[in-house]
Amino acid sequence: MTDLPVADFLSALLGSGLLLAVPLLLAALGEAFAERAGLLNLGIEGMMLGGAFAGFAVALETGRIAAGVAAGAALGVALGSGFGLLTIWLRVDQVLTGLAITILGSGLTGFLYRDLYGGQNRPLPTTAARLDLPVLTDVPVVGRALFGQPLLVYLAWAAVPIAALVLGRTRFGLAVRAVGEAPFAADAAGIGVAQTRFAAILIGGAAAGLGGAFLAVVDVRTFTDNMTLGQGFLALALTMLGRWRPWRILAGALLFGMLRSLETGLPILGMDVRPEFVGMLPYLGLLAALVVLARRAAMPAALGVPYERGRR
């Protein structure tokens, strides 16, 4: 490329990197609550897909983006409550339950998409509202990327300090951490282990559904089969990479988003690199970060362990 409009291109590069980070960020933040409470939710991929489909269907029918986003979160809550009921009260294996939800999410959304829309792709009739700050949006390169994104992007960013505050500084956050580290001690201290874990998984489900809804309703503005393409599992890795801490999770999500954006941006910038190589970059980056940052991470002691009062 000889006449590349560099400022516009770099702005697009930065903007798409930030957009790519959002579904991962939301899902990983929710997963941090669940895992801190001792629940390993491998159903996050299915919850994201469910949220994507529910969000798309409701937004298409109502013509309202906000309704679609809310529906995505609501479906995540519903799936989260199913996960909670099965694993907390019925003590079904968490791994199996999570995988079943992921398979269910993939199969059911594909079936419903075909049944309701005949497999014909439908674009949403409306677009998500964008922040448009005068002056700031016009700043070259970063203006549009940082200050001209859909509102849900800023809500996702705002969720980071809120999650950090709730997990680190509130009675509920303390209870979540307690039931994930030492459920017997928490129970003895009067904390309702089952109730706390259930609340945590509802937050996790809502956030995963919201992440999926963001993808379908705000970003791509349509639904396609299996459109999350493993982002739920990436969110799981990000949660561990971030050592269950919201700010670190944000850093990981942004790193991954920017690397994914660079993956296709570098060749356009004129770097002669094979797609197979640049395609590895985000995952290599994530792997390197995991090796450096997460090896010292101490998992919540009761992660994946069902709790039954009086039985150790």
Partner: peptide, 24 residues
């Protein structure tokens, strides 16, 4: 190129096309 076997990656298709449009 969106990626390896990225046939169903709608989000990837959007991202790359955004960049191509931004390139003029």
């Amino acid at each position: 190129v969106i990626g390896v076997a990225a046939y169903g990656d709608a989000a990837g298709g959007k991202r790359v096309t955004d960049q191509v449009l931004a390139a003029g």
